[in-house]
Design a protein around this nucleic acid. Structure first.
Lengths: 145, 145
DNA sequence: GCAGTCACTATCATTTTGCAAGTGACCCAC
DNA sequence: GTGGGTCACTTGCAAAATGATAGTGACTGC
């Protein structure tokens, strides 16, 4: 597993997971997306211990996925907003959600609807070149050098 | 954060992360996909401690993402294979890889090529209903009950 | 001045991770 | 037939991360 300290590995998945490889980080991202941008909202929404939330928030900010913004000087109040990198990660969360629904989806679940059509979103990962879902065509792995 | 013990949450992302919410699990999946199916291959490929690998493998098997199969009775030798659920998770890893390449992609990286066209795969998450990339159209969140 | 909210930090127990060494089943060479 | 060597782990213990609980500082509103 690559870390910032040792030599970066050659695998882009590892590179991604380096930045948000843990569960709380992803759940924080999900909650910010649905509008829970303030510390107390996130803490109560997630049921996370305050020290852990603080650490996750600074790690996510350090990794460039969120940024802290002061929206009130007095009283001093901050909110956490997604950066472009953070917003770009949201589709992956939707894909994880679709997978979770399929394989662990017992009971009532929340879902995303297309605002225009009202239909439930069905996230699928495709190859932008062919338009085909990943897994439907044979691939090969190429290593650098 | 939902666990198996407490009441299952309403969020499908959480449901997904419940099964493979950690970094090693995803990297194990990635390595199995690229053909490292045996214990020693995974251990040396990942640089993971043997006790941790054992625990991850049993957790992944318990979660139904991989299964252990004996391919030789004498000497007793096992390999780990992806189940349907495990294979279904691979597109998500590709999406994470694409994100990692975009935001943490310095240096040489491995990549997947379409076997037929030879072109580098560009994973994108779309809504199967509209064909539009997630994030390009406004969505709303619907809660159960 | 006093309660209450928000956004934390500090302290400490518990849990998870990681390293190193060891074990059991076997195979192959001498 | 004993002495390595490989594979697939387990065990024991140290280090790091996580989590529960309590406390702090900056306010606001009464």
């Amino acid at each position: 597993m690559a870390t910032d300290e040792n030599i970066l590995g050659t695998c882009p998945v590892d590179r991604g997971l380096m930045r948000i490889g843990d569960r709380w980080s992803m759940l924080v991202l999900r909650d910010i997306e649905r509008g829970l941008t303030r510390y107390e909202q996130l803490r109560t929404g997630l049921g996370i211990a305050p020290n852990i939330l603080s650490r996750r928030l600074s790690a996510l900010a350090e990794a460039g996925l969120i940024e802290k913004r002061r929206y009130s000087a007095r009283p001093p109040r901050d909110e956490y907003l997604l950066t472009d990198a953070g917003r770009d990660f949201l589709p992956i969360l939707m894909a994880i959600g679709a997978w979770g629904r399929k394989y662990n989806g017992a009971g009532a679940l929340s879902r995303h609807l297309d605002a225009a059509t009202g239909e439930a979103v069905r996230p699928v990962v495709i190859d932008a070149n062919t338009g085909a879902p990943i897994g439907s065509r044979p691939l090969k792995l190429e290593y650098p050098e």
